[in-house]
Write a protein that binds this DNA or RNA. Structure first.
Lengths: 183, 183, 183, 183
DNA sequence: AATGAATGAGCATTCATTCAT
DNA sequence: TATGAATGAATGCTCATTCAT
């Protein structure tokens, strides 16, 4: 089963994918063992790739954040499009919801580790899109994002997407078709 | 340290207060032992007063919900006033935030036990206030509450209250002075 | 609810009866609280009447033993009759089974406390009956009793009685109609 | 103290041996921690090897049962020889006594988990030996085993073996020299 | 004498993390 | 580098026993 060094990158990717799944299903305090199991690697390998639990969470969030940044950096991106990507990640990833709500939350702060930094990167990405097009005052944008994050609950993907869109509508903010980046 | 049976009611109250504090600081899955310790009683006493963890959570939430219901039932109550009471509890109680966000959440539902019922009681209380005065479509009210719940983060009481009020403002909903019930 | 000193004897009797029931249903390590509850008295009263768990067990067993002794002391008692009373108690009382099996058992000795003494009293009662009538060598009688005790299992009273009688039959020992003393 | 994965099989064996000892000394509801301690491993390791308490009990009993089955399956086995092996295990293992007595006991059944199945396997093994040679009616064989189980008490191995043999003698059943299988 | 609350040790079980292989 | 066993510190909960009333 040990496929040697060549498998290292593959294993890491499998771990991140497994972690994303597991966090979505069981929440952010899911057992580490479950992540390793679902990635098909030993627990030791998990800890070789990530020093501790926070590092896994941060890596999962990193991917969410990077996609939002990429969407924002894309040629001719509109705020509606960037928010659509952000919304897609909210719907998919319980961890991402936590990030955007809990940036400075009093609760479970410790579990989010580098959350502050990641939250700021989301904010920067959105601010860039906001120039001159604001449907919302710039300072309110992250608040709106937190509010939508609060609304994204429900057992199925569809429930969560519907609620997210209703929430944006209630804020009077237009959002493009919800999708990952690149589409 | 044993102050005898006379202290029973006092102990129960201390446990609820301690639980509220602990939930605010450590989240809803805080150790039971911490609640007992902070209330200054043995763990056994905690379990005498509450059969299990859910009962403690439910009791804490019950108090939040009852105040909202009372505010709604008060003579001449307006929606703004009821939302003000609800907002006060959001600001004070991490558990209450969880209740209003997670009513149908996919994750950790089990930790909220009777949450569904409590969430419905809040909804009923608010719907009663909404007749003929709706600044929001009735169906959107609970969604709006969830959104504001999502916004209520921050290390201090003041942070959280400010963010809550900004969130209501962003939704265009008027809210009275944030306070418990009765004032 | 406190009916004063006059109720003391009544309470004690209720506790013994409750203990007998509880031991039959839940085994000898049933919670003390369950006994008090079923007797309708506070736990404190249980501990006023009995210094500790062993004392309760011993008292329950005492009553079993006394009936066997009385049956043996009765005018014109036959071994078959005495064994019938003993068998009745085996069928009714899980604790009594334990006593007769575990007199010197390596297991759970501690729970039986005065068991040795009680076991000897049963033996003396039976030996008295054995004179000149022995279907069994005298030394084997207590062994036979232990063997029958081992056979008395089953979910219902009827199951247990049937098995007890089959066991005596297998040993070639005649037993009268199974009944308490006095009938 | 951690001797690494190589010790896994050794640890498992140590756990089973420790469990057997502990059950013999303290009964089937002995603390799990005691088993781990006596095996010289952490509690976590115990739970790695066995998912829960029942699994430990079942494993201990499984070994007893398997030896009886093997003795029965051996070329030219006689009932006396099979019962000799069964008797050896009764003398050694308090858990095995419990199994054979409690197959349908009303009390603590739950602690035996798969006991029913194991008890049936013993019965099948014995029935196979019984054909055409019956000193006992077939239906009485398991009752006789239960009876002997009831007789096997006493602080030392020698006490228990002597009482077991006396019990079989009282039933008129011939038993070979008490020994494990293979001898 | 009765009550029932309080206590705190004890137990099964889980899980993050370390480590020998 | 990968593995998965070992570890031991929590954690929820139970229960015998004590004690203020």
């Amino acid at each position: 089963m040990n496929q040697g060094p060549r498998a290292a990158a593959r294993n890491r990717a499998a771990l991140v994918a497994a972690a994303r799944e597991v966090y979505a299903e069981l929440g952010l305090d899911a057992p580490m063992a479950e992540i390793a199991r679902r990635a098909g690697v030993g627990q030791g390998s998990l800890y070789r790739h990530f020093p501790d639990r926070d590092a896994v969470v941060a890596t999962v969030l990193e991917e969410n954040v990077v996609q939002v940044e990429q969407a924002a950096a894309a040629e001719g991106a509109t705020l509606a499009e960037v928010l659509a990507v952000l919304t897609w990640h909210l719907v998919e990833s319980a961890a991402f919801i936590g990030l955007l709500r809990a940036e400075c939350a009093t609760v479970r702060r410790e579990e989010l580790g580098r959350a502050g930094e990641l939250g700021e990167r989301v904010e920067r990405a959105l601010r860039g899109e906001l120039r001159d097009r604001g449907q919302l005052p710039a300072d309110s944008l992250m608040l709106a994002v937190a509010m939508v994050s609060g609304a994204v609950t429900g057992p199925t993907r569809e429930d969560r997407e519907r609620r997210a869109l209703e929430a944006w509508a209630l804020l009077g903010v237009e959002v493009g078709p919800v999708r990952p980046f690149p589409g």
